[in-house]
């Protein structure tokens, strides 16, 4: 039979331009921003001062105690939040979700408040664990709500999440207000790397570990992104993969929350930008999302440090402005296409 031998359509395929150069650009930016970040700050740390002070000088101390941890923290936060957003978008099959638009961050913050009130002496790792458990619960609640209330329009899904987050956030604020803890809470609801230094950022490596787990299970998340029917047909245990994804999201959210605070929009914007460039195959997307997320946070942190030099403004303010602008652009761009 030669029935199918004729070409099915006459359209010629445009050769997809090589995207490798964008990847190289991300890599170069990452290194350049990280190095710049090491030498920008209220105190003078330059290659010159490092050389003259030697290994015991003030500059060297500052570099090891503050600047390097801060840079590493920015990289880890950016990379892991991007991955949390990517995984969540695969689980929900919606491009507009991330921990911040689904109530997960708010639940984790509530968890922080609970530890402050009931377990004030708890070590930071304990606080993080409690926040992670609350975040996990929040992810579960969101997934349940989205399942029970079938939302027809894609943009309504994050609205449901934002409403959920609003309710939980209000509860948290109410109790924090009554217990006179609003100020301590503000420390987490506003993301900043100002307090990051040696000994106070290491939990972020746990978030980094979660990126590794996500990469290991990348194909499973891609298949989950096709939907439950496809996943089942391909012999995948849908519930188990979703559960692993939920843990990844919750742990990353909690680790970032206890070290840097809330960093909005990142988990939403970065995977979307990457998706436009190279698509949603998770295995391919993970290095891009991690790299671009790190670049995004490094750049925003740098801006936060130099705008009112030598003072700092909170990172979340810069991230919020840049992220919201990008978000709007993505939203309007999507509308313009016939979807």
């Amino acid at each position: 039979m030669t029935a199918l031998a004729t070409p099915s359509t006459s359209t010629s395929t445009p050769v997809r331009p090589r995207r490798a150069w964008v990847g190289v650009l991300i890599g170069v930016l990452l290194v350049a921003l990280a190095l710049t970040g090491l030498f920008v700050g209220a105190s003078d740390v330059t290659p010159g001062s490092l050389a003259s002070g030697g290994a015991d000088g003030d500059a060297a101390f500052l570099l090891v105690a503050s600047r390097i941890p801060r840079t590493l923290a920015a990289v880890l936060v950016g990379a892991s939040l991007g991955i949390a957003g990517l995984i969540m978008q695969m689980l929900v099959r919606n491009k507009f979700v991330e921990p911040g638009t689904t109530g997960v961050s708010e639940f984790a913050t509530l968890g922080m408040l609970v530890t402050i009130v009931f377990l004030p002496g708890l070590a930071v790792v304990g606080k993080m664990a409690v926040a992670a458990v609350f975040g996990l619960f929040g992810t579960w609640v969101f997934l349940r709500v989205v399942r029970i209330v079938p939302v027809r329009q894609l943009v309504l899904v994050p609205l449901v999440g934002i409403m959920l987050g609003g309710v939980v956030g209000a509860v948290t604020t109410f109790f924090a207000y009554r217990l006179d803890l609003l100020q301590s809470l503000g420390q987490w609801s506003q993301g900043s790397f100002a307090t990051v230094m040696q000994g106070r950022y290491e939990f972020l490596w746990i978030a980094g570990l979660m990126v590794g787990v996500a990469w290991f299970a990348a194909d499973r998340f891609s298949v989950i992104g096709l939907g439950e029917e496809f996943a089942t047909n391909l012999g995948l245990d849908y519930r188990r993969v979703v559960a692993v994804g939920m843990v990844i999201i919750a742990v990353i959210t909690a680790a970032v929350l206890v070290t840097a605070g809330m960093v909005p929009f990142l988990g939403l914007v970065v995977p979307n930008v990457v998706s436009l460039i190279i698509g949603d195959n998770v295995r391919r997307a993970i290095p891009w999302v991690a790299g671009l997320g790190a670049v995004f946070v490094l750049a925003c942190d740098l801006i936060a440090r130099v705008v009112r030099f030598p003072y700092e403004i909170p990172l979340s303010v810069i991230v919020g402005i840049v992220g919201a602008a990008l978000f709007l652009w993505l939203l309007l761009r999507r509308r313009s296409r016939a979807h």
């Binding site: 194909d219 096709l226 949603d280």
Partner: peptide
């Protein structure tokens, strides 16, 4: 399929 996948990706899965 909401995810942006290529034909090759899909067949690979």
């Amino acid at each position: 399929v909401a995810a942006r996948l290529t034909v090759h990706d899909l067949v690979e899965f």
